[in-house]
Design a protein around this nucleic acid. Structure first.
Lengths: 144, 144
DNA sequence: CTGACTGCAAACCCTTTGCAGTTCG
DNA sequence: CGAACTGCAAAGGGTTTGCAGTCAG
């Protein structure tokens, strides 16, 4: 967490951008959240802590975090963007339950390796592999 | 192509909906296009042939085609929806070139099987598996 | 101080929807 | 004929942007 902040500050300096409290706040909030966040959720999480940041700043900062490689932006079958922190070396994929919206993360080294092999065969240099499986969670209990 | 039309007509009848020239036109155009289409591209393709259909009808009909299982709707890392024809038994995944936007389709039975196995382990019943690999095509020639 | 940032509200853009007129069955 | 459809234009909803005021360096 500290590491990310340090990295972000360096990134900002390198790009002639300013280190503001809003930016550090958003970074911290993103990194305190384990799963996926959309801009509005982030806004309300902060509001609940009595912290105010405008929606515009949230979007602008999230983009910055994406540029810095600290966050990832995607659409997991939902209508709007969701963001999540990037943890180096901890890639994962998603199963999205179409009835509850719940997201299960998973990872499989063999699958990953196979996909990279296929890319190589096709002359494609992969930068990001995303697997999204839609379906239904069978025992929709409350584990995980 | 004929097969799809027949199927679509049956689908419409079964659902108490009407077979209109606009619907058949859109079905035909989707099936004449090999790759991915967004609503506007479809609109312009038709305009170029002197055929006029409103945007609203395009969206409504595409949804119908999705319901009928003849088309698939997704966001391939682009900002808006893209649609593509569904060819039964011909599932595939995508590599999206981040510099040119070009899309390469691929399929691998082993990967598919592994993913289904993982779903089973997690108690998840998959209905649609989507793999999207972003990266760069190395020899960006003009093959395929 | 000056350039960069924030907040606000308006603009955007693709998609959806309400309505009046048209067409299929 | 009557229910369902089309086209138009306006509404929607998340995201982006212009601008005036504020703040970091």
């Amino acid at each position: 967490m500290k590491r990310a902040e340090k990295y972000f500050i360096q990134f900002l300096r390198d790009n002639n951008q300013k280190v503001t409290k809003e930016r550090l706040l958003l970074l911290a909030e993103l990194f305190n959240t384990s799963g996926h966040l959309d801009a509005d959720t982030l806004l309300f999480q902060l509001r609940n802590q009595g912290k105010k940041v405008s929606r515009a700043t949230i979007y602008r900062t999230l983009d910055l975090l994406v540029q810095a490689g600290l966050a990832r932006k995607s659409r997991l079958g939902r209508e709007h963007y969701v963001y999540e922190r990037v943890t180096p070396g901890r890639s994962h994929h998603h199963m999205v339950c179409t009835s509850t919206g719940r997201i299960i993360e998973f990872w499989d080294a063999d699958v990953d390796e196979s996909l990279r092999r296929i890319c190589q065969e096709k002359g494609f240099r992969p930068s990001y592999i995303s697997i999204s499986i839609q379906g239904e969670l069978i025992n929709a209990g409350d584990d995980q």
